[in-house]
Design a protein around this nucleic acid. Sequence first.
DNA 1: CCTTGGCTATCTATCGATAGACAGGAAAAA
DNA 2: TTTTTCCTGTCTATCGATAGATAGCCAAGG
Lengths: 190, 190
Amino acid sequence: MAKTKTDIREAIMAAGRLAVQAHGYNALSFRELAKDVGVKSASVHYHFPTKGDLGAALARRYTETGSAYLEGMLAENHAPAELMDRYVAIFRAALSNDNRMCLCGIMSAELDDLPPGVRTEVDQFAAVNVAWLERVLVIAEPKASQQALSDRAVAIFAAIGGAQLVARGCQDIGLYDRSIRAYRAAGLMP
Amino acid sequence: MAKTKTDIREAIMAAGRLAVQAHGYNALSFRELAKDVGVKSASVHYHFPTKGDLGAALARRYTETGSAYLEGMLAENHAPAELMDRYVAIFRAALSNDNRMCLCGIMSAELDDLPPGVRTEVDQFAAVNVAWLERVLVIAEPKASQQALSDRAVAIFAAIGGAQLVARGCQDIGLYDRSIRAYRAAGLMP
DNA sequence: CCTTGGCTATCTATCGATAGACAGGAAAAA
DNA sequence: TTTTTCCTGTCTATCGATAGATAGCCAAGG
């Protein structure tokens, strides 16, 4: 089967996502990417004129995919604890996939080197996640104040990202599991 | 006053630490560093033969300085809550210093590109911090099980690092404060 | 005199980006 | 229907900038 334009674009984005999750935005190279996909670097520039365009597209796609997945979960009327289980599993999956990180998490660490277009997408990812967590918390604790739940949502998002960062840094996924267990034991998350 | 050998070495390390905290290990450049210090890049190579040597020295120094500071705090017999206040303030200070991150935190995100010598130093930083947190937790809750406190120590370290990462990514130090507040409210930390 | 510690100059590798050629197919003109 | 034109998408080749690293020179000071 011949490769269509969309095939190549998607292949670039797939390879790019994996590369960023493993090595960060700065280490993303048009040449390496082209080699992975089986084209020349100039062709990658054809699809994504600048590196910033590619980075922004990757972050946006990452957010959109994640958002759709989260919405789907929420629509299935699971209990908050079950929702959190699945949420935690998403970030765990990145680690178990060759010690990778959340794409927007690793980009956050490189913030100062990101083109503006990429930054806004990274912010958007955080906003989407925090908003989803807030909705889960409202289900779990309808009586709590809005401010408290909002803070909790940010805190859970940050805590999970931090557990991922530490576990990755020490190359020990057990640290992720232990952190999550402690978050739960303390009642930070449902 | 003439600059001694040690002066230059220290100046390189000081500038290097700031650069890594702002842009990460990968963005650390011998040329930029040399320009900051007022020497030539070859001179930096004289003091630190390879980039890995410099990175490892920076991480080690960072850990040693932090460790000494933490030991000093612990020796002053503060209450656990006061100790945590000060601990939290350390990581907050990095953020308020031009949106920087913990040196070893940002290096954790770049793990795959770190020379082995740097990795071990990054691991050491995490180990030192977790060990210190465990000691604080033992003071706060002498009756809790060792396993539970150990998990909590890892979790607190991860949670604070995550709060720093998210706040940096969104360029909003308020997210750090809100996260810490929620950690405390949930009882994750004293 | 000889070690120390900086310098100049340069090397190789790689980066993002661009220019220009060209193949192939669709669309338009004959 | 046949021919011509044009666009799409990839290619080769190359640009200037910058990376880390090295060789060799030279001045200062014990």
